[in-house]
């Protein structure tokens, strides 16, 4: 049998691509959203270590797109229950930024994978987010 380099390389590519994706997925740490959103929070005070140790990590997390999510935006709030019902405390959601595409509201539970950024983000003297997650997409 003659060795065909092109076929060999193509084969490697074929096998390696999903492998790389899978490795990436395996790298992500599974995090329950309640671990983040159920914390005691007071402005300016240290967050629990179980939370801060997740800062900067690639995480995989399940939850709901908040009702009231604006279609066509690139940012939405990710919450532990579908119904936050207009009430939005800063520790109760993850601010998700889509790196590709725009938001279409989707009811039901979804799973996101991305890099988690933790810390108080302020605007006009108010804390507007504690948790931020950048994801490629949400489907």
């Amino acid at each position: 049998m003659r060795f065909h380099l092109g076929t060999f390389l193509l084969g490697i590519l074929f096998v390696a691509t999903p492998l790389a994706v899978a490795v990436g997925a395996f790298d992500a740490e599974d995090v329950e959203i309640e671990v983040l959103t159920g914390i005691e929070y007071r402005r300016g005070r240290a967050l629990p270590s179980e939370v801060t140790e997740l800062n900067g990590k690639e995480v995989r997390i399940e939850g709901y797109m908040a009702l009231g999510t604006i279609e066509g935006a690139t940012v939405f709030e990710f919450v532990p229950e579908e119904c936050e019902c207009g009430r939005s405390k800063v520790q109760h959601f993850i601010e998700v930024t889509l790196l590709n595409g725009v938001v279409t509201y989707e009811p039901g539970r979804i799973k996101l994978t991305g890099k988690l950024d933790i810390g108080e983000k302020e605007e006009d003297g108010f804390v507007v987010s504690l948790y931020r997650l950048e994801v490629e997409q949400y489907r």
Binding site: E34, G38, E40, R42, G44, E81, E84, C85, K89
Partner: peptide
């Protein structure tokens, strides 16, 4: 924090929550 589960509690619009936020 439990208010988030039942939200339930049409959210336990909780005093506890309120108080926990009451910092300086």
């Amino acid at each position: 924090a439990l208010a988030l589960t039942g939200a339930t509690v049409a959210k336990l619009l909780s005093i506890p929550e309120l108080e926990s936020d009451l910092g300086p």
